[in-house]
Design a protein around this nucleic acid. Structure first.
Length: 211
DNA sequence: TTCCAGGCAATAC
DNA sequence: GTATTGCATGGA
């Protein structure tokens, strides 16, 4: 028998289709193509995108990424070299630019010094990287099946009654990971689908799914 | 104008 | 150990 989690996945996929995350400045969304990132620079772009998108809309992040690209700071070496004040103005659209600029610099340094695939614990030691950002980096930059839980995820599960308010980040993460095959492609789609669904609900275009 | 957006760290209690 | 607060911009 299918768990409610799997049913939710099938329903969302049927409703919205493949999401093609993580969007990249060069390739954009890339539905059904799970070969990204194709190189170290794309991997780094996902990492800094995951930091920039904290508590900020993706459209704001896209502006910041475009600014960084013009300044040749969308790769780790360029990020390390760029003047701090110029960096701050480049990422201004994403908010929290004082904190984020410092953390981007540290991420670039870390990325260049550590060539091996990081563990979740490695990532959580980095300044500005909490549970969601760590899982995003693992899942989208390194293709490791680590489920990403964001505020949307919790809100949707609450709404359909799969959890109550006492569930914390790790409990929700485990709920998904215990009920799904550990396939990074499924984890990537599922998280992206939850975000899309939440956006549709906010726009008032979708009602509660029948699950 | 107020609220919130693909959170996290520091501080308060 | 849990709860609260600051961080900052831009669009609805």
């Amino acid at each position: 028998m299918k768990t409610k989690i799997k049913l939710l996945y099938d329903t969302l996929l049927n409703e919205y289709g493949y999401q093609g995350w993580w969007p990249l400045s060069s390739a954009g969304y890339h539905a059904k193509d799970y070969t990204f990132p194709k190189n170290k620079n794309e991997q780094f772009e996902i990492i800094i995108g995951s930091l920039l998108t904290q508590n900020t809309s993706w459209t704001s992040v896209e502006k910041s990424l475009a600014n960084l690209k013009k300044l040749k700071a969308l790769d780790p070496v360029g990020m390390l070299k760029i003047n701090l004040d110029i960096l701050k103005s480049a990422i201004k659209p994403s908010g929290y630019f004082n904190q984020k600029s410092e953390r981007l610099k540290l991420l670039a340094k870390w990325f260049l010094e550590n060539k091996n695939t990081p563990t979740r614990e490695d990532l959580l030691k980095l300044k500005g990287v909490g549970p969601e950002t760590a899982d995003s980096i693992l899942l989208y930059a390194y293709k490791i099946p680590s489920f990403v839980v964001d505020t949307y995820t919790k809100r949707i599960l609450l709404k359909i009654g799969l959890i109550d308010d006492s569930f914390n980040y790790d409990m929700i993460k485990n709920l998904f990971e215990d009920n799904l095959k550990h396939d990074y492609k499924v984890f990537q789609e599922f998280h992206a689908l939850l975000v899309e669904h939440a956006k549709q609900i906010k726009k008032g275009k979708r009602l509660l799914l029948n699950i």
